[in-house]
């Protein structure tokens, strides 16, 4: 126990030193080298970050931009993972579903969600639909594959166990295949949420009137590096929180899969 406390202490000290050194280097670079023409120093960035959150960037505050991005991600992600998981489970369990959907899916999957941006604008215009469609794709592509492998790799002996206890095919699917695939599905959701977050930022960078992606894009157009960096920090924080929440959800849902053994 003591060892552990010591290790945490050392790690914390090292973290402070290394991040401090990084900030110092940044500060030094922006004050004493040619970088000063291009980059604001860390103090400016952090103070403007707070300013942006309280005040406005473009038409609204940075917080509102973030909430806009978040709303898009959540709607698209929910729809995409729902469809993806259902399709993936069916494809994993039933050869027929796999034969029908897999070739089409295999064709769509390697196209990065971002490459859909131009066509989604052609199809859905510049409104919300185009962005939600993209996030839908990002979530869909990642969850389908994982749900499928999850459903395919259920221990056959466990399926036998449920059959001898009287489960019919539909019951095997709902009571055995689905819960057994949960860890694998969560692995897909984990990748999916990161991919969805990246996609929304990209979509907003290319065409939007608000959102975090718009913030950094507008920063580029106005040659405002401070705004870009503030936007990046916000994107990073939200990205981290989304991944963190997903990990916690996985821990709760897959308690039976971890520990012991």
């Amino acid at each position: 126990m003591n060892e552990k406390v010591k290790e945490t202490m050392i790690s914390a000290i090292c973290a402070v030193i290394s991040i401090g050194a990084f900030l110092l280097l940044w500060w030094w670079g922006t004050h004493f080298t040619t970088l000063s023409k291009l980059m604001p120093d860390p103090v400016t960035v952090f103070s403007s970050l707070i300013e942006y959150c309280v005040g406005t960037v473009g038409k609204c505050s940075l917080i509102v931009h973030m909430l806009n991005s978040l709303r898009r991600v959540l709607i698209g992600f929910l729809l995409g993972s729902l469809v993806g998981i259902s399709l993936g489970l069916l494809m994993g369990r039933y050869m027929l579903a796999r034969a029908i959907f897999n070739p089409i899916f295999r064709f769509i999957r390697p196209i990065p969600p971002i490459a859909w941006i131009p066509i989604s604008i052609v199809w859905f215009g510049l409104g919300e639909q185009a962005k939600i469609f993209l996030i839908f794709l990002a979530a869909f592509a990642n969850t389908t594959l994982n749900a499928m492998t999850g459903a395919m790799s259920v221990d056959p002996e466990i399926i036998n166990a449920s059959r001898m206890l009287g489960a019919k095919e539909r019951q095997i699917f709902t009571t055995i295949v689905i819960p057994a695939a949960v860890p694998s599905i969560f692995a897909g959701l984990q990748v999916g949420i990161s991919s969805a977050w990246a996609s929304v930022v990209a979509a907003e960078m290319i065409k939007a009137q608000n959102g975090l992606g718009w913030t950094i894009q507008a920063g580029m157009d106005n040659n405002n590096m401070t705004q870009i960096l503030a936007g990046i920090i916000m994107i990073g924080v939200v990205g981290f929180l989304l991944a963190y929440i997903m990990r916690k959800a996985e821990e709760v849902m897959c308690r039976w899969n971890k520990s012991g053994r």
Partner: peptide, 20 residues
């Protein structure tokens, strides 16, 4: 021809449902 509830099985691999 197929499994039936009149024949219970205890497996060598135990094969409990790990999420239950």
């Amino acid at each position: 021809e197929k499994p039936d509830i009149s024949r219970g099985v205890v497996f060598q691999s135990i094969s409990l449902f790990p999420w239950m």
